[in-house]
Design a protein around this nucleic acid. Structure first.
Lengths: 200, 200
DNA sequence: GTCTATAGACCGATAGAC
DNA sequence: GTCTATCGGTCTATAGAC
């Protein structure tokens, strides 16, 4: 870029916020209180602004939700689009590991995504993209079953949902900066998903 | 019991609803739309009643939530209180299996419980009971690690959260009456939790 | 780019008739 | 045990001054 700051154009006048910063605070608050239970006034208060100042940055509360969900979905879709080669078992492990890392790196956004129930057009569109992602992962698992690397005594879609249920449940308790770092977490998840908790 | 019906006293006058029926419909609606996003007017409409008629059955919207959460928590706590003997590995498998069955048998109530975020005194009390349950399960897992039946290369609390995250994720997709019955589901979950998805 | 003020709808809950 | 009517409060969003 040119002069002054990194990527955003230099700020003038009052400090203020840019869209990205407002979005980050909004998502944090939505996750604390729930999207529906969070009013625009709540958000304005946390930012130290008035409601009207916020509406200068965004058209609606729902637009904030849409941008946040896109951030999460884009990350997850990137995990499937990225690699490609190697056998199904290795691809599956890479997707599992990648999903954990995206979840950790975009934790607030993915957390919000996983709580969406389809209560509006924006939410239903996000659920549709999630379903498409799940479908692609399921195909990968059934492929791995055919090649003999994933057990076939449990239905493919069922084992996919179980393992990704485990991954997604990370948003309920994992917090970056704690005792366990992102790579250790990804390793533990892949270990338990592939080989279970029992000793052999 | 004495004469007439099974447990509730015989209905007189207009058909109406009893507390249990109203609660069941309320929980269904809370799960569809979210607790906060569901108004008492929404619930009245689904029941074909007015708001005032509903307030004859209940003191507040929050009381409905409290009763529903108690239904779920009571079931889960019963799983830990029930058996007792055998070695840690068998006890752990029994708790896993029991949790799946309670989740299936009280699906709407457990679903609602798992979405609670602690936004009121009622919700915080429910979260506290959940934490106590999780703590007892974690102790069981670390005990099984000591006896050598559960892998020790992953932290005990972490493997507990991962496996119960998998169990809890069932509320996101499992629906009774589908292709997979409750016992088959419990078997599949215990299989994947203990031995993972990979073939050996 | 922020502010004050407010429109217009909906919220949970209550009063009181039948 | 249901109804109509309404209270006081909060919601999202907008108008318009500075």
């Amino acid at each position: 870029m040119s002069a002054s700051a990194e990527s955003a154009p230099a700020r003038r006048g009052r400090p203020g916020y840019d869209r990205e910063q407002v979005l980050a605070v909004a998502v944090e608050l939505f996750n604390e209180q729930g999207y529906d239970a969070t009013s625009v006034a709540d958000l304005a208060q946390r930012l130290g602004l008035t409601k009207s100042a916020l509406y200068h940055h965004f058209d609606s509360k729902e637009q904030l939700l849409a941008l946040a969900l896109d951030e999460a979905l884009g990350g997850l879709e990137g995990v499937l689009d990225a690699p490609a080669d190697a056998d199904p078992a290795e691809r599956l492990a890479a997707v599992l590991r990648g999903a954990v890392l995206v979840l950790v790196d975009r934790l607030p956004y993915v957390t919000l995504l996983l709580r969406v129930r389809g209560n509006s057009d924006v939410e239903r569109a996000a659920l549709e993209r999630r379903r498409a992602f799940d479908h692609r992962v399921t195909m990968l698992v059934t492929e791995a079953q055919s090649s003999g690397s994933v057990r076939s005594d449990v239905d493919g879609p069922v084992v996919t949902r179980l393992v990704f249920g485990m991954v997604n449940s990370l948003v309920e308790w994992y917090r970056p900066g704690g005792a366990i770092d992102r790579d250790r977490l990804a390793h533990d998840v892949v270990t338990v998903a592939l080989d279970g908790m029992r000793t052999r």
